[in-house]
Simulated scan of single mutants.
Amino acid sequence: MNSKVNETESLVPVFDGHNDVLMQLWLNHRQNPEQAFLEGPACGQMDLSRCREAGFAGGLFAAYVPSPTFPDLAEQASIVPSSGIDTRFLLEGVNKHPDFSPTPDLNSARDITIGMMAFLLRIEKASAGAVKICRNAAEIRQSIQNQALAVVMHIEGAEAIDPDLYLLDVFYAMGLRSIGPVWSRPNIFGHGVPFKFPSTPDIGPGLTELGIKLVKACNQKRIMVDLSHLDEKGFWQVAQHSDAPLVASHSNAHTLSAQSRNLTDKQLAAIKESNGFVGVNFGMSFLREDGQKSADATVDEMVRHVDYLVEKLGENNVGFGSDFDGVTLTPDMVDVRGLTKLVAALRKAGYNQQVLENICHKNWVNVLERTWGQ
């Protein structure tokens, strides 16, 4: 590493690759999400006040539709025939197999996703300039300079997209610039990697033909395709069919934590070759060597993965993908305000100001620019 800098320097702006605050607002503040986020306190790990306190300058805000809890999945059969997925696998396997949660049907996923994106539109309007939905890299940089929260619309799990991809056009017009084809469950576009430890990510058949069609459509629109939650076969299918940098928004190093959700050295080599990017996930079970949530865990677990990923990818291809409001954080982080502890720990580990700025926000903005174009 390069020379150390004083830990008391001003906050380094952080642009983060993943959060689930929209899910928290949907579940707990649906009547007035603008007030909950802008005025606080919102439940969960982040709202505007805490973001400002932490130096959180923006990030990818995910529309993630939670898995339904009802036991009867038969009504979801209408989404299956054109999907390329075996009906018995989707309707029986997901319901009975311990590795997967139920998959939302198209109608409910569409409605919830539109609702969550409407939250962002309302938050932006009510913020009087404090929050900006960004559609290109220049807008992100300008927002960070203006100290406005730079928000990028992201979909995690494409259950809200129809087989003809009509809704992809609609979501793009709303501001969508990033999409993960799957969460850790199957849908018409492919199979997410189930949460398993210890396990390789090579569990599952990857993308369907519709999934490959979605990847190519995203390339045409310059929408970023997020590799986090894809199984390994799906990863290599994206690598084969995509002409964009390979990006995993919130994943870690499999060598350090043998979670199925983490990336092998071979996958990291492919990401490096594409001039892609990995955002470190802050969830304890994706960080620790034992795969467990522990009262003894600290932000040093994150530093360990940053070190490893910088070694494998270079200092210009690594950043953060916290998964705030979607994971259990280390006890010393608590919520978004723990970012200051992480930045201090990286300084202590030897990262200088320039490299810190790259990891904290510039690398993310640069890979989005490489993906989206000017």
Rank of each mutant, 00 (worst) to 15 (best):
L214M: 15
W236T: 06
E124D: 14
L91C: 07
R337L: 10
D164N: 11
G180T: 01
M174E: 03
L287Q: 05
L263D: 12
I133P: 12
R141L: 07
L256M: 12
S67M: 04
L207A: 10
D290W: 01
E75F: 12
R185N: 02
R261Q: 12
A349Y: 07
L121M: 12
P68Y: 06
V306H: 07
L263H: 09
N262V: 03
P186R: 11
S143N: 13
T330E: 08
L263K: 10
E7Y: 04
N32K: 14
N352Q: 02
L263Q: 11
E34P: 01
G319L: 03
S249W: 00
V14P: 09
A77I: 14
I140R: 00
G93H: 13
S178Y: 08
V299P: 02
W183I: 03
N317M: 03
D307E: 06
T69Q: 15
S82L: 15
D105L: 04
Y351D: 13
C134E: 10
T328W: 01
V355G: 03
V280F: 11
D162F: 01
C51T: 05
R135P: 03
A297S: 15
P201N: 14
V131Y: 13
S257Q: 08
A244E: 07
P163Y: 02
F61K: 02
L356I: 14
P205H: 12
T113S: 15
P181I: 03
Q76F: 09
E39F: 04
A42F: 11
F61A: 04
A62L: 10
Q353I: 06
L368P: 02
L106K: 05
V225M: 00
S143T: 13
A258T: 13
G190E: 04
G175H: 11
D86C: 10
V151R: 02
F56W: 15
G338K: 06
F70R: 04
